[in-house]
Simulated scan of single mutants.
Amino acid sequence: MKSIAFVLLSFLFYGAGCAQVPAGNTLQIKSLTQSDVKLDGQLSEKEWTEVTPVDLRSPWVKRTDHIANYRSFTDRQYFYFGFEVTDTTLMLYVSQEETDVAKGDRVELFFSDKPDLKNYYCLEMSPADKVLSYRAKHYRVFDNSWDLPGLVLSARVKKGGYTVEGRIPLAALRQIAGQAAGDTKPFKLYTGVFCGDYFGADENDVEWHSWITPKSATPDFHIPSAFGVFEFE
């Protein structure tokens, strides 16, 4: 999330935002022997029905419902992920400029090997089937030259919202986790799961949703308290 509207951080909460990941914010990533998922943005295969969805909620706007959910699993080769988003005010920027993804509706996955976010890796994915990928260091030092090897993405706009479906080679995630090539032991990653829902053309016309509630007075996902833990079998 790079909207300049949220670059300024509330110093009152800055120390809390740098705390360790709270206990209990852990998601066990289910492992399947094999997968027949076709990446078409529909999330219709039986594999998706075997995974309990995680609701993404807005920490900064009072509402009882949720607009997005997330689910994921692995097979022997890949990490699969899927988002389903309800959105009646779809804001899309379709261009060849990768950074334009950050101007509209999107879902996001951030990964780090350590809770201090000394190094973390970000995927921002739009309903237009575009991805903004970058490497970062705390606090908000971005390197847009980074791309995630082997990422495959499929997004689909539908009535009342959109879906984003993708896969990442497990080897790429193991590398982020600091595992040696060929190592197949269970591992974990500190992970952020987010959604940006724009309802107008102004960069401030957005509502942010998250798996974890960050310890910040204003919307900010580039802090350790916005991350939980994914445990891979």
Rank of each mutant, 00 (worst) to 15 (best):
A68F: 02
N69R: 14
N69G: 13
R71F: 04
R71P: 11
R71G: 08
R71K: 14
T74E: 04
D75H: 03
R76I: 13
R76M: 12
Q77M: 11
Q77N: 11
F79Y: 08
Y80D: 05
Y80M: 05
F81R: 00
F81Y: 08
G82D: 02
G82K: 00
G82C: 02
F83M: 01
F83S: 02
V85T: 01
T86W: 10
T86L: 13
T86A: 14
T86F: 08
T88M: 08
T88D: 10
T88C: 09
T88P: 06
T89G: 05
L90M: 05
M91P: 02
L92T: 14
Y93F: 14
V94T: 14
V94Y: 10
V94M: 08
S95Y: 10
E97F: 13
T99M: 13
D100K: 03
D100N: 11
V101C: 07
V101E: 05
V101Q: 05
V101D: 06
V101A: 03
A102D: 13
K103P: 09
K103W: 10
V107G: 02
V107R: 00
V107W: 00
E108A: 12
L109D: 01
L109E: 04
L109W: 04
F110P: 01
F110C: 06
F111E: 03
S112A: 15
S112T: 09
S112N: 08
D113M: 15
D113P: 14
D113W: 08
D113H: 12
K114G: 15
P115D: 11
P115M: 12
L117I: 06
L117R: 01
L117Y: 04
K118D: 15
K118C: 11
N119K: 09
Y120V: 01
Y121W: 11
L123C: 05
L123F: 05
E124C: 10
E124N: 07
E124K: 04
E124R: 04
M125L: 12
M125S: 01
M125W: 04
S126F: 07
S126I: 00
S126H: 02
A128Y: 07
D129C: 13
K130C: 15
L132H: 08
L132P: 02
L132S: 06
L132D: 08
S133M: 12
S133C: 11
